[in-house]
Write a protein that binds this DNA or RNA. Structure first.
Lengths: 242, 242
DNA sequence: TGCGATTTGTACGTATGTATT
DNA sequence: CAATACATACGTACAAATCGC
């Protein structure tokens, strides 16, 4: 039973091998710490070359299902916690995916300097010029999100010339900072009076708050807080052993 | 300038090639849609074999930075939204990571059947036996989370024999269902009276609610709702172009 | 301490298949 | 149909890490 590994004949060989080894792991038949057959054993088992077996095993290691070490071989990884992949798309995309018309309103645009107000969260030298933008997003005419952007003008100087009256800052930034390094912090908070009014909610309503810091080439580029009515928006994610 | 790609001499060759091609993409020098040099061109550029170049390009494609198509070649992918990886560890691990002592209390344990109460969210045949568990988690003696588990006994029959008075159901399930397919939905909600009392909060306090559905071999296995005080807990995630 | 054996990591060369223009 | 460029797969070789003797 320990070696009832079988190929299913569907798709590329390295995928079949990956699935064959994956199955007893996700079924629990091979508990964490159990040794996985070596590449040579799998070569003999399946009649495949080592490159092919190696690719299958490397993929499993990349996905975190096994841990590979030289000489000692590979073992099933300990299931720590989930690492869920949350898709955080643009607000426009989210709204339009729900077949509603999207619109946007700029609430404020002002220049500031670091170590002033909420910019302290940013970890940049005091005095660094920042651009602060507040805006509101609508789905079908109803407010659906508030956003507060702090853009580091030392890192993104072009932002100075942009009025942000038509283009939401999130989309503008995404176009200029493709694939930045980012950190997200998601919490819940009670809407204050001003926030509740802007979102058309009763004061105190629970809201989802998503803070995002992003860097460009190691330099802090933007700090964005997004607020959603708690009942009107959800962050969804998935974990799937491939 | 379009071909000022250079290796840095550090680490394996395929990593160097990946970094060399990654750099102009994340800097924005190569905008989405721009053609990436073909494998043959990169072979000639770097003097590497096609297998090595292929591995570098395949990794970039796996990470979503490029899209590969036969005949037409590879292009820089459009930056859609972020796909943040949120680590959702066990509550015990989270508490102990903050140097607090963890404890756990079982509040309820009862048998139920599907299409009864909140089990309807589950999409399983009516009448399927379920086990419902409520529990509370403490960090340093103070309540830090509430959990409500619905376990499908048709998928996880061993749960019937487990009292869950010492072992939190989350940990018990994690040990028996390693790497299940899971879906997460994160929302915010106002604490009701009972919830507020159990979490030692003022009624109405914003809480973070994490719903998790998990499947085992395609069969729904468990539905878990976790509630955290909104101010006392955060879900954090990261996006990093490797 | 050193040495050999095992196992994975990297890289090469080559060949053939497949999707697309 | 031909050309292009990626996809898969084989065989080989050497390097690096590590374990046991």
């Amino acid at each position: 039973m320990t070696d009832s590994l079988a190929l299913d004949g569907r798709g590329p060989l390295h995928e079949q091998i990956r699935r064959a080894v994956c199955a007893p792991i996700i079924s629990g038949a091979w508990p964490p710490g159990r040794r996985v057959p070596s590449e040579h054993e799998l070569m003999a088992l399946f009649g495949a070359s080592r490159m092919t077996v190696n690719r299958a095993m490397r993929t499993l290691a990349d996905d975190g299902l096994i841990v590979r070490r030289r000489r000692t071989g590979s073992v099933v990884a300990a299931a720590t916690g989930d690492r869920a992949v949350m898709s955080i798309g643009s607000i426009r995309a989210t709204v339009e995916a729900g077949d509603q018309t999207y619109s946007y309103e700029s609430l404020a645009r002002r220049h500031a300097r670091a170590s002033d107000d909420s910019a302290g969260r940013f970890k940049i030298a005091a005095g660094t010029p920042l651009l602060n933008l507040s805006c509101r997003h609508f789905a079908g005419g109803r407010p659906t999100a508030l956003e507060d952007h702090w853009i580091n003008l030392a890192a993104v100087p072009e932002a100075s010339d942009e009025p942000f009256d038509k283009t939401p800052p999130g989309e503008w930034l995404a176009a200029r900072l493709p694939w930045p390094k980012s950190q997200y912090v998601v919490t819940a908070l009670n809407a204050g009076a001003a926030m509740a009014k802007l979102l058309d909610l009763a004061p105190g309503t629970a809201c989802l708050k998503i803070d995002r810091r992003s860097w460009r080439n190691g330099v802090p580029a933007a700090f964005v807080t997004t607020l959603y009515p708690g009942t009107g928006h959800a962050l969804t994610g998935e974990v799937a052993p491939p």
